[in-house]
Design a binder for these strands. Structure first.
Lengths: 222, 222
DNA sequence: ACCTGAACACCGTTCAAGT
DNA sequence: ACCTGAACACCGTTCAAGT
């Protein structure tokens, strides 16, 4: 990206990779993922569509750069204290910011991203687990389910009209044949309720942390 | 779908919703999700593209029907015995079949699906949790994280060339600045290793089951 | 009733050309 | 070096028409 020496060559139109990423982010905010087209980004910048291809090889490259940039902008809580509440606060903060920017989750499904911006969260989480008494390798193993659960939960959250989705699901569950689905139909309201809301995330997070804590104590003991 | 009485009106071309879903599944197997277009499905059936719109209102409807049909075809292990190994076997079987049919995960991200075919797994899981001593409502709460973790893990698995993805991630992690990423760089191999493979799924599943079991015992005790 | 070609309003990207 | 219009090979879907 840098052009050799120290100074940066400014393009005729004042374009930079960063300004293009910024425009893409604005398009995303206004038109959503389906509306994020190369033509729309170029239009917002007032340049020809093909101009973008001088800065990014293709749309995938632009999307990768966008994920990295937006991930790096997320606020990481740097709390102190015991490892478990610290890890809990970290995952809650990550989750709530993923909920606000659902496209980040959708984009990450495309491939694992090992860019610095996207990995700061992981590093902080690993540090907490290491201070709990795990080796770096053990911490890596233990952090993966937290990551998967947090992103997974966010990715199954309804994007729009969550209360409508919950109501529709509730109705659909009640329509199931009770002889084939005895438990599901008798807990239809609670089942539908888990589809949205923060509470269901916290419940699973706490169960996962219970399991990890037990594992930490076993490792320490052995 | 059924036309009034008992007999079914066969179309001029012998088309049924089921035969269209079958064709869509074959296209999916051969060309993947990006190749699954209305034109491709119609071509495979030897009919005009627009003919499909007589059976499904739009592409989304066809996709929903496809998810439901394929979900219903998954093999559910109906083991007996204590609830925990039974639940563990259920999630392992679901996970391994999701890994074989990754598009099922991708399609489910679009919206929550409350069709019978997709909910049989949930019902079996809930029954195990109920036998463990939870009420239907408590079982619903406890099952959600298992569902989220299992689908989430499968959805972050690299679709192709997993060993290549792991190697690339390993190299990328080693390129991070060690002063900013001390734990990550010192556990680069283990971290990259968690991106693929069955083992990382089982580790997290067991931690989650540990947490749920503790919760079950607490509920029983109270 | 069932089926369909043409057409519309989109995509990402290649290519040759402009300054 | 930087930028771009035209064009290509696609999409999903509407519409009017065919049998």
């Amino acid at each position: 990206m840098a052009t050799g020496g120290g100074t940066r060559t400014r393009s005729r139109l004042g374009l930079t990779p960063e300004s293009i990423i910024e425009a893409a982010d604005q398009v995303l905010a206004e038109a959503g993922l389906p509306g994020l087209t190369m033509r729309a980004v170029a239009d917002r910048l007032g340049v020809g569509t093909m101009t973008l291809y001088g800065y990014f090889r293709d749309k995938d490259q632009l999307l990768d750069a966008l994920i990295d940039a937006k991930s790096a902008q997320l606020d990481i809580p740097r709390s102190s204290g015991p490892w478990r509440p610290r890890l809990r606060a970290l995952m809650l903060a990550l989750h709530s910011q993923l909920v606000e920017r659902p496209f980040l989750v959708a984009l990450r499904h495309r491939r694992p991203l090992a860019s610095p911006g996207a990995l700061r969260w992981t590093e902080i989480g690993l540090e907490a687990l290491q201070e709990a008494g795990l080796t770096p390798a053990e911490a890596a193993r233990a952090f993966r389910p937290l990551f998967v659960y947090t992103f997974g939960h966010a990715s199954f959250l309804p994007l729009e009209r969550p209360e409508q989705v919950v109501r529709d699901a509730h109705a659909a569950l009640l329509r199931l044949p009770p002889d084939e689905f005895p438990v599901l139909t008798s807990a239809a309201a609670e089942m539908a309720g888990t589809l949205a809301g923060q509470e269901s995330f916290e419940y699973g997070l706490d169960r996962l942390l219970d399991g990890i804590e037990a594992q930490v104590e076993r490792t320490r003991g052995g």
